[in-house]
């Protein structure tokens, strides 16, 4: 370590920092250490695990795409259009970010449940109801992930210089053309980062999903809910599943760092 010209970092800061790092790292290392590697392949290829893994990846990917289609316009609106109530809209969009996921599940039930404000007429009109279906899982994922995606993309749009939008307008482009050909391409790294963030948030989503959809293998049982169930009956399985999630999380982090965030 090179000598810091400002002096040695004080112990009053270094000690809590070290504790914080240990607190974050030790449980993960312990989990890896406690894994029964002999039975791991067998655990990971069992049918409930593969079903849950497949369902998790499919629903998280679907939720990510929905978040992109719905979240990008909201982010653009917040970043590029001056209107009354913009602050309020941003606050409303951000609420699910700080909401306990179980509460999100209850809220979804009130709106999209079989007797919900939207759920009941929907059921009467089409015979379809969200709860306890894979669609319900995607809906719950979107609800909790969308704020992350909107905030991340809005940040990316804000950091892009608005002079390019102005240049585009003077060249005769409509706002839609400007959005497609200038705004989005310039903010693409941030948009991709937002999508990955949304995807990983969906992947780990537990509270809202289980509250709104229950825990049915094959239709609503995702990895986190399977881990929750397995934890009570089969410790080793829970351990193995958690290992997969850890590996996926680290992969996402690496992807974000190397490709888009550009941090050393």
């Amino acid at each position: 370590m090179t000598r810091d010209p400002l002096g040695r970092p004080p112990a009053a800061l270094m000690v809590p920092a070290a504790v914080a790092v240990l607190l974050l790292v030790v449980p993960l290392v312990a989990m890896v250490a406690a894994t029964d590697w002999a039975t791991l392949p067998e655990q990971l290829t069992s049918e409930p695990v593969l079903d849950a893994l497949r369902l998790s990846v499919v629903t998280s990917t679907a939720a990510m795409l929905v978040c992109l289609v719905l979240g990008l316009p909201v982010a653009w609106l917040l970043a590029r259009v001056a209107f009354r109530g913009r602050g309020l809209l941003r606050a409303l969009v951000t609420v699910p970010l700080v909401l306990p996921p179980v509460v999100a599940g209850i809220a979804l039930r009130s709106a999209f449940g079989r007797t919900g404000v939207i759920g009941e007429p929907l059921l009467e009109l089409t015979g379809f109801a969200f709860p306890f279906t894979t669609w319900g899982v995607v809906l719950a994922h979107v609800f909790v992930s969308l704020p992350f995606v909107v905030i991340a993309i809005e940040g990316a749009l804000r950091s892009a210089d608005p002079v390019y939008d102005a240049a585009s307008a003077t060249l005769g482009a409509t706002r839609w053309t400007t959005f497609r050909r200038v705004t989005v391409p310039l903010a693409m790294p941030g948009i991709l980062a937002g999508m990955v963030l949304g995807w990983s948030r969906s992947l780990g989503e537990f509270g809202a999903t289980i509250t709104f959809n229950g825990n049915y293998p094959g239709t609503t049982q995702t990895m986190p809910t399977l881990i929750y169930v397995a934890r009570q009956s089969d410790q080793d399985a829970a351990q193995a599943l958690s290992l997969i999630m850890l590996a996926l999380s680290i992969a996402v982090l690496l992807l974000l760092r190397d490709r888009w965030l550009g941090t050393p």
């Binding site: 210089d161 002079v163 390019y164 102005a166 240049a167 585009s168 307008a169 003077t170 060249l171 005769g172 482009a173 409509t174 200038v182 391409p185 310039l186």
Partner: peptide
């Protein structure tokens, strides 16, 4: 609106689309 005007503007910092 800006796009409807037959006006060409060369910006001070040029503002060429970098992509």
């Amino acid at each position: 609106s800006a796009r409807e005007r037959e006006v060409g503007l060369v910006f001070q910092d040029r503002a060429l689309f970098p992509h």
